[in-house]
Design a protein around this nucleic acid. Sequence first.
DNA 1: TCACGGAATATTTTT
DNA 2: TATTCCGTGA
Length: 648
Amino acid sequence: MKLNFGIPFQESLNEAQLKAVCFEEGPLLVIAGAGSGKTQTLTCRVARLVNEGILPDSILLLTFTRKAAQEMLQRAAHLLDNRCEKVSGGTFHSFANAVLRKYAERIGFDSGFSILDRPDAEALIGILRKETASVSRYRSFPQKHTLLNIFSKSVNKSSSIEDVVFYDYPHLASYLEVIAEVYKKYKKHKEDHHFMDYDDLLVHLCHLLKNDVGIRDRISSQYQYIMVDEYQDTNRIQADLVKLLSEKNKNIMVVGDDSQSIYSFRGANFKNIMNFPEVFPGTRIIRLEENYRSVQPILTLTNAMIEQAGEKYTKTLFTRKKGGSKPALIQAGSENSQSRFVVEKIKELNRQGVPLCQMAVLFRAGFHSFDLEMELGRDQIPFIKMGGFKFMESAHIKDVLAHLKVLVNPYDRISWYRVLLLIDNIGPKTAQNIYETILKEKARHQGIFSEKFRSSNKKGIDRLRDLFLKIDSKPLAVAEAGEAVVRYYSPILKEKYDDHPKRTRDLEQLITIMERYNNIETFLTDMALEPPSISMDDTFSEDVSNGSRLVLSTVHSAKGLEWHSVFIIWTLDGRFPSMQALHRVEDLEEERRLLYVAATRARENLFFIYPMQAYDRGTGILLNRPSRFLDRISEDMLKKDAIDINLF
DNA sequence: TCACGGAATATTTTT
DNA sequence: TATTCCGTGA
């Protein structure tokens, strides 16, 4: 039976997809296997609703990345018309930000709160960590990034610092009190200075909706239809938010795949998707099991891999794609032999007509590809490593932004330190003195004028003062202020980095971005929340002649993507699954899902490669078995080969 | 108190 | 690869 909606997409949908698209009212759980057309289903549903006259701004589409949201709405607009672009869509965080800006005062916040991105949060913790006197007594007190991980996990799992430390960081148990002390300071500092880190956005929104019935009613009435993508990666707070937001209309559709839940280390809880039917009584479940991506031999293997998983919604993916060759597990003599194999195989496939950009090498951790990167360089094979560079997090960009942040919020300590430490002969101590003077005299950025400085500092301080005077003297457009800062910063940049030409170009890009804004606060918020997914393209545009580049990626960053041929390296037991995950069943299960995600990225060819042996530095154990997730799989599904290092 | 250099070290990271 | 940490000397 086919229904007709008079819109041109329905022929492209299979029966299960169509059911999901046409689903009317109430809670709906869509279990969407890898490559089963989940995005298309969501997209079509949005288009269908809008087409039937539902107001776009009463539809809410929540995703984890800004890119995913944009893409879906654009595709929906393409199917129907541009009403779809008006659908409220975005990440949980940007949604929270938007709501909180409106109602901040209800939770005792200034609507002009600033957002701390990860480096900012770490920097703040770094300062507080040093300030905490007792830290110096301990030799191996956790570093700032570890502290932030602990704090964040405690928030995202809604459990106490104590529980997180005992459960996930037992080796730090003796520092518990001091860790808790730093946490308290961190929290207080954020409150005092109207900062929110990423987690706070969700926490405060949740708090607002829970405690303010009026606002909760207003918001949950506004959204008639709510859809959530990648539901298996939501954490406790996000699940609560979904529940609160859908309170009035109960038209909540979540889409996800429990087998692809790989973010528990960030507090994601795949139980959310398992428990959904209990939390929302009357839930309909629809399974999307037809895979449009991989050939059958790959699906047969990946089905077998995930079959062994403990808890899951059962589903069996199938495809109508014919042919295809059996995936292979390859033992290489050494790490370098592994790299050589990959390089040679890629060259071979490339000769057969597979473009480089249709091949990917995936691995568990970023540094696993170092040796391969060198081999690729030697053979002059162009590649792009995903998840690597973060435009907004690079030092020079942060430097420039810090100057603007100080103008917006003169009590922003992290940014002040950042700005001041750039000046010659100013170190942490001097920076602290200056900051305290500013705070004491409530002197905003003019505060730097009043302190008496040693003559060795004078020149640098004077330059900074000139900059602030210039920006103060007349109202400047965002980009003009940015240009002034860049002009001030440029000599420092040249002094500090020998690759300054490239970085200077980045700064020019930043100015270009600024030109789109007429308000510095909005600009800064966007940079923290929705940083431009910089195609640092111009870095590579010099060799545009060969636009096609091989992709190197961690498995996490590869989620949702697909390639003609996929190589998974380091499938050595102890690397993948990683050593740290062996002690706990849940962790091991997540590793299994991770390898599953990696393997299901492949359309035609799939290779697992591992070096014959490697020492684990942490434990001193010799790793010499292939991944336990592959070892027990029979030869019918997985071809097992050893290659000789001398072959290459 | 700061700057410099060398060494160590690294899960995974949509916000 | 790249970032960060620590010790040393000025």
